[in-house]
C-alpha cells in the first residue's frame, strides 16, 4: 500500500477516535492536517486521475469530508460547514459512478438544505433541490427539509417549530434551533410593519414565546429600539412613508423640446 495512503488512514483513525471522544479541538487540528495531505493525491477532485488506489483514496477522502461536515455541525460553525460541504460535493456529484453510495449522503444533503433554509437563502435552496433525483426526494432526511420549507413559506410557523421534535437525524437539532430563531425574526419583522403597538400578552403569543420573560430577553437582545410601556409593546420604527420621488417633468419637457430642435437642424 502507498505509504501516503497508510499515513492518511492512520491519521484518520486518530481523528475518528478523537471524534468519538467528543474532543473536537483535536479533531479540528487533525482535520486540517488531513486536508493538506489530501491535496497531495492526484486521484481526488478536481484532477480525478486514474491512479492505482483511486477508489480507495476517493472513499477515504469522502469519508474525511463527511466527518468534517458533521464536525462543523458539532462545533456549530456554519462557515466551516459550508466550506466542507462544497469540498465534499464533487465526491457525490462527479465521482458517483466510481464509488459505492455513501450512507451519509442524504443526511448531509438534507443538512445542507436545512442550513440554507436557516440562512434564509431560499433561491439556493431550490437550486440544490433541483439537482436531486426524484428518488432522493423520497428520502426522509430530504423530505423533512422540503416540508419545513413549505411550512415556512406558507407562514405555518407553528408547524415549523413543532417539527423540531421529529428530526430524522441527531445533527439536525442544531439547525432546528436556529430555524426557530429565523422564524421568530421573520414574525418580529412583520409585526413591526403591521402594528404600531401590541399588548405584551399578544406579543408573547405572536412570537411563540412560552413566557413574558423570554420575550423581554428577546427584545433586549434583538430589538433594543422597541419600548415596553404600560403593558404594551410599542414599535418605534420610523413609519413615515418615504415620499415617492417626484417626476422631473420640467426637465424632461425641456430635454424633449431641445431634441426636437436639434432634429430640425440635423441634415
Amino acid at each position: 500500500m502507498d505509504p501516503n495512503l497508510t499515513e492518511l488512514c492512520q491519521l484518520f483513525d486518530r481523528f475518528k477516535a478523537a471524534f468519538t471522544r467528543h474532543d473536537y479541538e483535536t479533531c479540528s487540528n487533525l482535520l486540517t492536517q488531513l486536508k493538506v495531505m489530501l491535496t497531495g493525491f492526484k486521484s481526488l477532485p478536481p484532477l480525478f486521475e486514474n491512479t492505482k488506489h483511486a477508489v480507495q483514496e476517493l472513499t477515504i477522502a469522502r469519508d474525511i469530508y463527511e466527518h468534517a461536515v458533521v464536525l462543523s455541525v458539532k462545533i456549530e460553525d456554519q462557515d466551516a460547514f459550508e466550506r466542507d460541504f462544497f469540498q465534499l460535493k464533487p465526491y457525490y456529484t462527479d465521482a458517483c459512478g466510481r464509488l459505492p453510495h455513501s450512507p451519509q449522503e442524504y443526511p448531509i444533503l438534507g443538512l445542507n438544505l436545512l442550513r440554507l433554509l436557516v440562512q434564509n437563502r431560499i433561491a439556493e435552496f431550490h437550486t440544490e433541490l433541483e439537482l436531486l433525483s426524484s428518488s432522493a426526494l423520497e428520502n426522509p432526511c430530504i423530505k423533512h427539509a422540503v416540508e419545513l420549507e413549505q411550512s415556512f413559506m406558507e407562514g405555518a410557523y407553528n408547524r415549523v417549530l413543532s417539527a423540531r421534535q421529529s428530526v430524522p437525524h441527531e445533527t439536525y437539532v442544531y439547525f432546528m434551533d436556529l430555524l426557530a430563531k429565523t422564524v421568530r425574526d421573520e414574525i418580529a419583522g412583520c409585526s413591526e410593519k403591521a402594528y404600531d403597538s401590541l399588548s405584551i400578552n399578544d406579543a408573547t403569543q405572536l412570537l411563540l414565546f412560552s413566557s413574558d420573560k423570554e420575550l423581554h430577553e428577546y427584545i433586549k437582545e434583538e430589538h433594543p429600539e422597541w419600548e415596553v410601556q404600560n403593558g404594551r409593546l410599542i414599535f418605534q420604527q420610523a413609519k413615515e412613508a418615504a415620499t415617492c420621488k417626484e417626476i422631473p417633468s420640467l426637465q424632461l419637457i425641456n430635454q424633449t423640446l431641445s431634441y426636437a430642435r436639434e432634429l430640425e437642424r440635423i441634415v
Binding site: 486540517t32 486536508k35 477532485p45 480525478f48 483511486a54 462544497f86 465521482a95 466510481r98
Partner: peptide, 25 residues
C-alpha cells in the same frame, strides 16, 4: 480503473477551499 477520467463539474469545492485558513490549501 477502466473508467474514463472524470471531469469535475463545478469549481465550488475549490472555491470553498479558498476560505480555508491554511495557506497550503
Amino acid at each position: 480503473m477502466a473508467t474514463a477520467a472524470t471531469m469535475v463539474s463545478s469549481a465550488g469545492g475549490l472555491l470553498a477551499m479558498l476560505n480555508e485558513p491554511n495557506s497550503l490549501l
